[in-house]
């Protein structure tokens, strides 16, 4: 089966990147608009915010899949006629890289842990792309700053680089305006 379109969208915090990416999905004829969410509630405010966003999207006909970790688990829930938006790679990376920190054994400290997750992610992205018409991936621009967390930032650069390379189109969003880079 021919691979569907893969579009990468990045931007700074509150740049309007998610809203713009949602527009891409809305304009695509598809059976379902699927919102693949990586956000996770760590406190009551966050839980409420997530619930509010989920309700908002439901009203507008979106189907939400929450998958903060192990993105591959979402694959069986995605149907061939879906258009999928994944928001966002930045959050996924933070969740996976520090997964296990509560037990004081985060992935980042475990041998080959992130390499394995990265190879799983690449496979999962390929699978989602292969079974849908449009797959839009949203991420954050956090590399135009001082190095605060070298491992995280290095991984994010590597992931973005790969996503841009794989994508059919790539956009940078600033203040709600999308600039096409690929």
């Amino acid at each position: 089966m021919a691979a569907g379109q893969l579009i990468f969208v990045s931007g700074g915090v509150r740049s309007g990147k998610s809203a713009w990416a949602e527009g891409l999905i809305r304009e695509t004829p598809a059976k379902r608009k699927v919102y693949l969410a990586s956000g996770r509630a760590n406190d009551a405010e966050m839980a409420e915010r997530i619930q509010r966003h989920r309700d908002d999207r439901k009203e507008h006909g979106w189907h939400t899949i929450e998958q903060p970790l192990q993105l591959e688990r979402a694959v069986p829930q995605i149907a061939p006629e879906d258009a999928v938006l994944w928001d966002c790679a930045t959050t996924w990376l933070a969740n996976e890289l520090y997964e296990g920190w509560e037990q004081e054994n985060p992935c980042v400290d475990r041998q080959d842990c992130m390499e394995q997750k990265w190879s799983d992610l690449q496979k999962t992205i390929g699978q989602i792309r292969n079974r849908t018409k449009l797959f839009v991936i949203v991420s954050n621009e956090v590399l135009d700053d001082f190095i605060r967390d070298r491992t995280y930032q290095q991984w994010l650069g590597r992931i973005h680089f790969w996503l841009v390379d794989q994508s059919d189109q790539a956009y940078e969003v600033e203040n709600g305006v999308a600039y096409r880079r690929k």
Binding site: L143, D145, Q153, L156, G157, F161
Partner: peptide, 8 residues
């Protein structure tokens, strides 16, 4: 020119 880890 560009951000860190962008492949410069």
């Amino acid at each position: 020119f560009g951000g860190a880890f962008n492949g410069k």
